[in-house]
Structures are given as structure tokens and as C-alpha cells.
Design a protein around this nucleic acid. Structure first.
Length: 576
RNA sequence: CUCUCCGUAGCUCAGCUGGCAGAGCAAAUGACUCUUAAUCAUUGGGUCGAUGGUUCGAAUCCAUCCGGGGAGACCA
């Protein structure tokens, strides 16, 4: 109990007191709910019988106790509603325990209760449930941050991003606008799925664990399968599997997929993210551009009833048609330089002149991409298609039907960021093999993201794939735009973060020291156990500096009478 | 990986020209029968992120480290 705050201790005591009064703080049975808070706010009219006996359930969010009568608010999935409790109605006889002790003293903000009663309007004009009967459904052992509001001013808002992301459940309880972001995200996905189903495309699922990774330029995560004793990769894209399905005779397949890329993290990049990839046979990239315009316009309308969406300082209009530039055109437009006939060496000079860092591993494609990313992309706020990329940066796209050295590819840029990427898919297996081999060469030059050669995919292409248009659209980034959020962490329930150490209560089995062989003294072994370490392997994987920091913290907190550790001692354990 | 800002009570934050750790909310106890950031009185609550240094004395100054935000690098 030592590690608990005073408020947590009070709540645990309340659990015991409730039990001694014969009230189960965590009852097993369900609670019959027939009304939501929002129903009452929307439909209640004074004098109507319809809300004379309602049953609802939710979490207590605030309380105002005035002796023998009280107001409280509960929050259910639809919102909040005020409750009115009156002692002498809840406890008509001599025994006032239910109100005085159970409600006033043993219930807290954060507890979940069910109530039955009738709806009325208070003297202050607020729609309120007059409680005739209440039931504790779950006692909360931790206090909730209390956020208050008056005349649209919020007090003590729960805003710290670290706490909000690590404890998203708390964020969702106290910040209703956060909840709304995720509801919109799901509505966006549903609208997109409906749009695709209406056109007859088949939603499919393909492997996340792959013996080879491919379909994008990115570094993968690796894992290991014990039975097969082999290395597996987490997919970076689903492209190659979906095209195998087009070979197999489906003529429109799509997948909403979690993809994994082992790269830097930022407000636009999370190690795992969601894409929707779509492949349609007998179509080309021109057709796909029209589909993307139509689909994204449709999503904006489905979410906002309007094609204009406010994003930060900008108003973005998704109404068709969107502006279209070729890659060379847009670079000429924004930098004044015509790079269409330049060699790799000339491009390196251009990049240098524009102040862009170049590296030995960069081929022509990466150089052009760098120039575009630096000089054009951030300036494209309204949805814009960029078409016809250099062949070097698009090893899976079909050569352009008329322009030498280019491929039939487009990206849609919006708010300065790519939201999708699509091409006429390369279906010439001989060309595809050559392009993979060029990627291998880039890999030898040090490009860690170059693609690997997938023999089975080539075999599939050799059986023949119809001309196909393919699309990948980033769901997280689209959601950021559609919900006006500045970072990807705000549209992911649980963004990736460094692990947090949670201290545990440990029973006094100090005799066993699993770390003794590593040279850890018994006194510190029990502290390690508290930090959740149970075996030496676990310990060895830990950053010694962090361990040092955390052990020092616990030593101080528990006021331990042992000298502080030195970082060298911890290093010695981990190496020993 | 680089730069930069931040880390103080359950939450939001003040204190930072070194000198006994503070406020509001939340909590405890009491008063109060339509309140709404309810009100009033009393009380408790702290790994000042960690370690080391400077100092008679460090939340405050310095160094290293941990965690996080922002910007960049890398990258979609």
C-alpha cells in the first residue's frame, strides 16, 4: 500500500466499507439501460410521460453536494447528463446510510453507476434525471483528472501529450473532442469501404508476416518463427500480394492494412500505420486518378457534408477536378529549373545549388524526389496530382506510354504531404526483373531502402497479369486532414512510445535473487523485481542509463537506506 | 542522430536574482434540500525526472543521463 497516493488509499478503503455494507463494488450482473444521455437532451419536453421512468448508466464526472440533496453528472457513451439525488426520497425511513454513507462518502468521481428515475428541468433550467434508485456498477480505484468548464472556458484541461497518449483511456473519458476524432476516423474508413464495395471490389486479407518484404522503399522490422526457424519480416506494403491476386483472376481487390516501417518517428510517421491499397484490372493510372478524386470528395462530403475542410490555417477544397502537374512541370514551376533532360551528375549539382544534401547512394530517382520534396511538396496545399515520375524511383510502375524515361505514376499531395500513391502497374516480367536488379545495385551502393528481388512475384507475373491500376492511400494522413489534427499521434489510439516503467507491488520473497549471478546485491534485486524485472535476460536488454535513472528514483521514493548506485556498477551487471 | 523547450501534489500550474516546497481543482472531516468551475470552514497530501558536482545551504547554478513536446536529418 506504500506506493499508493492518499486518494487511492481512500478509494480502496471505500471498497472494503462497501463490502461490509453488503454492496459489491464490482458486481457481476449487467445493468438494463433503456436511455442514453443524448436521447434525453434531444427529445425531452416537459410534461411528457416518455421519460418518466428511465434507466441509464455511466461514469460520475462531477458532484455538488448540498447536505440532504446533491447534483452529479454522469457520462455515458453519448455524453453527459445531470442527476439529482435527494436523501429523504432515497432513504424514506430512519436509516439514511444509502445516501449519507454510500452516495456521499463511498462514491467518487470516476465510479460507474446505474440510475433509474424521471426527467425534469431544474430551477436553473437544466435537464436532469431525478434519481429514485441507484446501483454501483464499478468502483474506480484511481482518481480521474477533473476538467471543468464554464462559458466555453476549460479549466485544468488534461493536455499533456505524454499522459494523453500513454493513458488514452483517461484522455477519452475527459476529452470528448478526442473521442470525436476517432469516431470520424471510423466513419471515414466505413465510407471508403462502402465506396469500394459499391463498385464491386473484393476486400481481402494478405500476410503481415512475410519471408521477403517488398512493394515500397522502406526498411522493415524483422521477427523470427520458431518452428520454421526462419527470419520473417513485417510487411511494409501489400502491393506484391495483391497483384498476385490480380494474376489469380480477381479483377478488383483492396485491403485496409496495417503496415510497418522501421524508420524515424515524427508527427507524420508512426512505426505502424494504416494504408488502403486497391488494384483494379484493365484500368490505368488516368482512370485511377479520377477514382481518387471522386472517392476523396465523397469522403469529405460523408464526414462534413461539404467539400471544403478547414485544416490549420487553410481551407482545403476537395471538389473535383483537382489540379494536375507532371513531376517535371511542378519542379519547373516552383524552382524555375528544367530537369527533364539532366544526367545524374547534373542533378547532383542542381540539388547542391538548392541547398539539398546529397549522398553517394542516391540515384536519379532519389535526387529528383529530394528536389521535389524540398521545393514543391510543402507548397501544395490544395489537393494536387503529380504525375509521370522518373523510372528510377518507381520500380513497380509501368513505363510511360509516350514519354521516355518516365513511368505512369501519380501521387496526390494535400496540405503539403502525400496522401496517396498510384500507378499503372508494371506487368512485363522481364522489365520487372531488370528493375529489381537495378534496385539490388542501389542496395549495393548503400541504399538501405532499396527493394529486394522477389522470385515468386516474378513467377506470378510470368503467368500474365492484366493491365492493372494500383493505389495506396494513407488512412492516418487522410484522417489527420479530415479531422484537422497536426500530428499522427492524435489519430492513432495508441501511438508508439518508449516503454514506461510501471512499478509493481512485490510480495516479500526477498530470499530469491534471480540476478545474483550478474553480481546484483540482494538489496537491489528486490527493487528490480518492483520495476517488473524477473529474469537476467530481461535486464540485459535494458538501457543501463534508464535503469540507473529508475533505480535512483525508487531509492529516493522508498527512502532506502542504501547508497546510490554508480552507472559503472549497472554496466558491470549487464555485461557480467 | 542534431538543435530547442519542458519535467514540481491525483490534474493544471506558480516558485528558478540559491535561504523552511506553494496555489486552484481533486481528496479527507464538518455545514448546507434546485446546484452547476456550487458555496463556507478545517485538514492531509511531494522520487521538485535521476545521478554527480559547485556551495555553509540546490526545486533553483553546472555536467551527464532518463522521459516527453517542437523543429530538423533520415524517411512517405
Amino acid at each position: 500500500m506504500q506506493a499508493l497516493s492518499d486518494q487511492e488509499q481512500y478509494r480502496r478503503q471505500a471498497v472494503e466499507e462497501l463490502r461490509s455494507l453488503g454492496i459489491d463494488p464490482f458486481p457481476a450482473e449487467g445493468y438494463e439501460v433503456d436511455t442514453m444521455a443524448a436521447d434525453i437532451h434531444r427529445d425531452f419536453r416537459p410534461g411528457e410521460a416518455r421519460f418518466s421512468n428511465v434507466s441509464l448508466a455511466g461514469r460520475i464526472m462531477s458532484r455538488r453536494i448540498m447536505g440532504a440533496a446533491s447534483f452529479a453528472e454522469i457520462q455515458d457513451a453519448s455524453g453527459r447528463i445531470q442527476l439529482y439525488f435527494k436523501r429523504d426520497e432515497l432513504c424514506p425511513g430512519e436509516d439514511k446510510t444509502l445516501y449519507n454513507t454510500v452516495f456521499k462518502r463511498l462514491l467518487d468521481i470516476g465510479d460507474i453507476i446505474g440510475v433509474k428515475g424521471d426527467v425534469f428541468i431544474t430551477q436553473m433550467g437544466e435537464i436532469t434525471v431525478h434519481v429514485r434508485e441507484f446501483t454501483l456498477l464499478c468502483k474506480a480505484l484511481r482518481p480521474l483528472p477533473v476538467v471543468k468548464e464554464k462559458e466555453d472556458v476549460t479549466f485544468d484541461a488534461f493536455r499533456d501529450p505524454e499522459l494523453r497518449y500513454r493513458q488514452r483511456y483517461v484522455d477519452l473519458i475527459v476529452n470528448p473532442e478526442v473521442r470525436e476524432i476517432f469516431v470520424k476516423r471510423t466513419r471515414l474508413v466505413n465510407a471508403m469501404r462502402q465506396f469500394l464495395n459499391d463498385r464491386g471490389y473484393l476486400e481481402v486479407e494478405t500476410p503481415i508476416l512475410q519471408p521477403l518484404y517488398g512493394g515500397a522503399a522502406a526498411r522493415p522490422f524483422t521477427t523470427h518463427h520458431n518452428t520454421l526457424d526462419m527470419k520473417l519480416y513485417l510487411r511494409i506494403a501489400n502491393e506484391l500480394y495483391l497483384k498476385r491476386l490480380i494474376v489469380g483472376g480477381f479483377d478488383g481487390v483492396y485491403e485496409f492494412s496495417k503496415d510497418f516501417r522501421n524508420e524515424g518517428m515524427s508527427r507524420f510517421h508512426n512505426p505502424e500505420f494504416t494504408q488502403m491499397e486497391l488494384y483494379v484490372a484493365y484500368r490505368d493510372y488516368e482512370w485511377m486518378m479520377n477514382l481518387v478524386e471522386e472517392m476523396v470528395e465523397h469522403l469529405a462530403l460523408a464526414l462534413h457534408g461539404n467539400t471544403v475542410v478547414r485544416v490549420g490555417e487553410h481551407e482545403i477544397n476537395f471538389a473535383r477536378p483537382w489540379k494536375r502537374y507532371t513531376m517535371y512541370e511542378v519542379i519547373r514551376e516552383f524552382s524555375g529549373i528544367d530537369i527533364s533532360r539532366m544526367t545524374e551528375a547534373a542533378l547532383i549539382d542542381v540539388a547542391r545549388d538548392l541547398g539539398i544534401q546529397t549522398e553517394a547512394g542516391m540515384g536519379k530517382g532519389k535526387l529528383i524526389d529530394a528536389i521535389f520534396g524540398e521545393k514543391c511538396e510543402p507548397l501544395l496545399i490544395q489537393p494536387t496530382f503529380i504525375t509521370d515520375y522518373p523510372v528510377e524511383m518507381s520500380p513497380l510502375a509501368k513505363r510511360h506510354r509516350s514519354a521516355e524515361g518516365l513511368v505512369e505514376r501519380f501521387e496526390a499531395i494535400c496540405n503539403g504531404k502525400e496522401i496517396c500513391n498510384a500507378f499503372s502497374e508494371l506487368n512485363d516480367p522481364i522489365d520487372q526483373r531488370r528493375r529489381f536488379e537495378e534496385q539490388l545495385e542501389l542496395g549495393r551502393r548503400g541504399d538501405l531502402e532499396s527493394m529486394v528481388l522477389d522470385e515468386d512475384f516474378l513467377r506470378a507475373l510470368e503467368f500474365g497479369m492484366p493491365p492493372t491500376a494500383g493505389l495506396g492511400i494513407g488512412i492516418d494522413r487522410l484522417t489527420m486532414i479530415m479531422t484537422n489534427q497536426p500530428s499522427i499521434q492524435e489519430v492513432l489510439f495508441f501511438p508508439q512510445m518508449k516503454p514506461e516503467i510501471i512499478t509493481q507491488e512485490v510480495e516479500g520473497n526477498e530470499a530469491a535473487n534471480p540476478f545474483s549471478q550478474m553480481g546484483v546485491p540482494d538489496a537491489w534485486a528486490s527493487i528490480l523485481a518492483r520495476l517488473g524485472f524477473s529474469n537476467p535476460e530481461q535486464l540485459r536488454k535494458t538501457n543501463p542509463n534508464k535503469l540507473f535513472n529508475d533505480l535512483g528514483g525508487l531509492r529516493k521514493k522508498l527512502k532506502l537506506d542504501i547508497p546510490a548506485l554508480k552507472i559503472e556498477e549497472i554496466r558491470a551487471w549487464l555485461e557480467g
